[in-house]
Amino acid sequence: MSKTTLINRIAMIRSKKYFRKKYGADFFAVLKKKSNTRLNEILPAVPDIGDSVFAQNFSFCPCYIAWYKTFLELGQSNTEACENLWAMNENLITMIPKAFRGFANKQSVDALYKKGRQHEIRSSDNTVHPYDWKIRNLKFAENVVEYEIYECGMIKLCRDYDALGLFPAMCRMDYLMSHYLGSGFERTKTLGDGDDCCNCRLLVVGECEWAPEKGFDNRK
Rank of each mutant, 00 (worst) to 15 (best):
Lys139Ile: 01
Glu120Trp: 02
Thr127Arg: 03
Arg117Thr: 15
Arg117Glu: 08
Leu138Ala: 00
Ser123Val: 02
Ile135Gln: 01
Asp110Asn: 13
Lys114Ala: 11
Arg117Asp: 14
Val128Thr: 11
Asp132Gln: 05
Asn137Cys: 09
Tyr113Ser: 05
His129Lys: 04
Trp133Ile: 00
Ala111Lys: 08
Lys139Val: 13
Ile121Val: 15
Thr127Tyr: 00
Leu138Cys: 00
Ala111Met: 12
Gly116Lys: 02
Thr127Asn: 06
His119Phe: 04
Leu112Ala: 04
Asp110Glu: 13
Arg122Asp: 12
Ser123Ile: 00
Asp132Trp: 02
Val128Gly: 04
Ile121Met: 15
Thr127Ser: 12
His119Thr: 10
Ser124Val: 12
Asn137Glu: 14
Phe140Tyr: 11
Asp110Gly: 08
Asn126Met: 10
Tyr131His: 07
Ile135His: 03
Asp132Cys: 12
Ser123Phe: 01
Asp110Met: 10
Gln118Met: 12
Leu112Gly: 02
Trp133Glu: 02
Gln118Ala: 10
Lys134Trp: 14
Asn137Lys: 10
Gly116Arg: 04
Asn126Pro: 07
Ser123Gln: 00
Ser124Glu: 13
Asp132Arg: 08
Trp133Cys: 03
Gln118Trp: 06
Leu112Lys: 10
Trp133Asp: 00
Ala111Ile: 01
Gln118His: 10
Ser123Ala: 07
Asp110Ile: 14
Leu138Thr: 07
Thr127Ala: 07
Val128Pro: 07
Lys139Met: 07
Ile135Phe: 01
Asn126Lys: 15
Arg136Phe: 05
Lys134Arg: 07
Phe140Thr: 03
Asn126Thr: 08
Arg136Ser: 11
Trp133Met: 02
Phe140Cys: 09
Phe140Val: 05
Leu138Ile: 03
Arg117Tyr: 15
Lys134Leu: 06
Arg136Trp: 08
Arg122Asn: 13
Arg117Leu: 15
Ser124Met: 05
Ser123Tyr: 00
Tyr131Phe: 15
Trp133Arg: 00
Gln118Asn: 14
Ser123Leu: 01
Phe140Ser: 10
Ile135Gly: 01
Lys114Ile: 12
Ser124Arg: 14
Ser123Lys: 00
Ile121Leu: 15
His119Ser: 04
Lys134Thr: 08
Gly116Val: 04
His119Glu: 07
Gly116Cys: 11
Glu120Ser: 04
Trp133Asn: 02
Arg136Cys: 06
Phe140Ile: 05
Gln118Glu: 15
Arg117Gln: 08
Trp133Val: 02
Arg136Val: 09
Lys115Thr: 01
Lys114Trp: 08
Asp125Gln: 11
Asp110Ser: 14
Arg136Leu: 00
Asp110Thr: 11
Arg122Thr: 09
Lys139Cys: 12
Leu138Val: 01
Glu120Arg: 01
Gln118Pro: 05
Trp133Leu: 00
Ile135Leu: 12
Ala111Ser: 12
His119Pro: 13
Asn126Tyr: 13
Lys139Asp: 04
Ile121Ala: 14
Lys115Ala: 07
Lys114Pro: 01
Phe140Met: 03
Pro130Gln: 14
Leu138Pro: 09
Phe140Gln: 02
Val128Glu: 06
Tyr113Gly: 06
Asn126Asp: 11
Asn137Leu: 03
Arg122Ala: 09
Arg136Lys: 15
Lys114Phe: 06
Asp110Trp: 08
His119Ala: 10
Ser124Asp: 14
